[in-house]
Design a protein around this nucleic acid. Structure first.
Lengths: 205, 205
DNA sequence: GTCTATACATCGATAGAC
DNA sequence: GTCTATCGATGTATAGAC
């Protein structure tokens, strides 16, 4: 391959770093050029505009993250195990790459079309019509393994409980002294609390 | 009073509208001036800079929202009722002003110092050292009214479950066909599902 | 393909007349 | 107090030499 694709790869990699930490609006083409070790003009030579470069990079980042996560847990086990596994794997994936939460947040602010398209495509390519967790819960309800809850509502609850600490991380760590969202102890404790809450609630026996 | 303070009030009101919908970075002083019916120069005359104007407006918005919410529910009732009341009032407040969620999100991205300060002050002025819900849960655990959960973890779970639909609104409505976060039916259903989940979980009797 | 230089637009902030 | 005009900085995008 020519020097051509090497440079393109360098640019993509640099763009990932910068966009991930600064967001689309906050990122400067100059920064990306500096990190890539080239100059601004080359960015426009390879990718016509900032928008196009961003779109390409965004889809790649979401694809990598969501793909790795979706393939990390199976849905054909016992529901109880699937649920615990989902929570664990999701929290782990988030704590490994917390910048992605902010990154997707920026996108949602703009309407979230890229993410929605990408996610839908990745679900479809794995045989799901919507968020896989919804289907899993639907099945568990149909088989009478859990009480008849609304699968969409429960899915929103689970995702919200896992995601919120990362979304509000700087805030929570300021308001609740001693709290460290990315701390291993906190995360394993969080995993257990979410699972227990879903499974048995707080009601006394 | 002189025309002086009238203009100032008009500016503040215009700034609230614009900052609320565009965020700090996205807002243009020109937009604010247009909405207020004056010109950019006057903005600098009354408030030295965009930063100062933003800080003033931000604190006002958070103060109004959080103040109204904090005063809308009492903590000295039965825990069960307090919990249900918290969820209801929180969801209602959020659905009435969903732009505030995005607005605070922008602030968190910048570190969230303003919000943390403001919230802490408002908790303190009402006799709480931290998030009131934490204290309420602490008491319920101490009195044996619920099983011994970690109050901080449960609080994060509750807030996450209430807040997440509004944070991810555009995304959820794209990925889950037919879902309308601000729809009354969805919200009352959501309130019940959150409460039931917390109270008894999904485990079969 | 890769560079330098620069055009073009936007925005916050200031100067100065009234 | 309020306006018009403009500065200065920054950022995307392009022209043109090599």
């Amino acid at each position: 391959m020519s020097a051509n694709s090497e440079t393109e790869a360098k640019i993509i990699q640099a763009a990932r770093d910068v966009f991930l930490h600064k967001g689309k609006a906050g990122a400067r083409l100059q920064d990306i050029a500096d990190v890539a070790g080239i100059n601004k003009a080359l960015l426009h030579y390879y990718f016509r505009s900032k928008d196009r470069l961003y779109e390409k990079v965004f889809k790649q980042i979401v694809n990598d993250f969501l793909g790795e996560f979706l393939d990390s847990f199976s849905t054909d086990e016992d529901f109880r195990k699937t649920l615990k596994s989902f929570i664990d794997k999701y929290l782990t994936a988030l704590s490994k790459r917390p910048e992605i939460v902010r990154f997707v947040m920026w996108e949602i602010k703009e309407g979230g079309v890229f993410f929605a398209e990408q996610a839908h495509g990745m679900f479809a390519s794995r045989g799901f019509e919507t968020i896989p967790l919804i289907s899993v819960i639907q099945k568990a309800v149909a088989e009478g393994r859990i009480r008849p809850v609304d699968p969409v509502q429960l899915t929103i609850s689970i995702i919200g409980m896992c995601l919120y600490p990362f979304i509000a991380q700087p805030l929570l760590e300021k308001i609740i002294p001693g709290l460290e969202v990315q701390n291993d102890d906190f995360l394993s404790q969080r995993s257990n609390e979410i699972f227990d809450l879903i499974w048995q609630g707080v009601g006394v026996a």
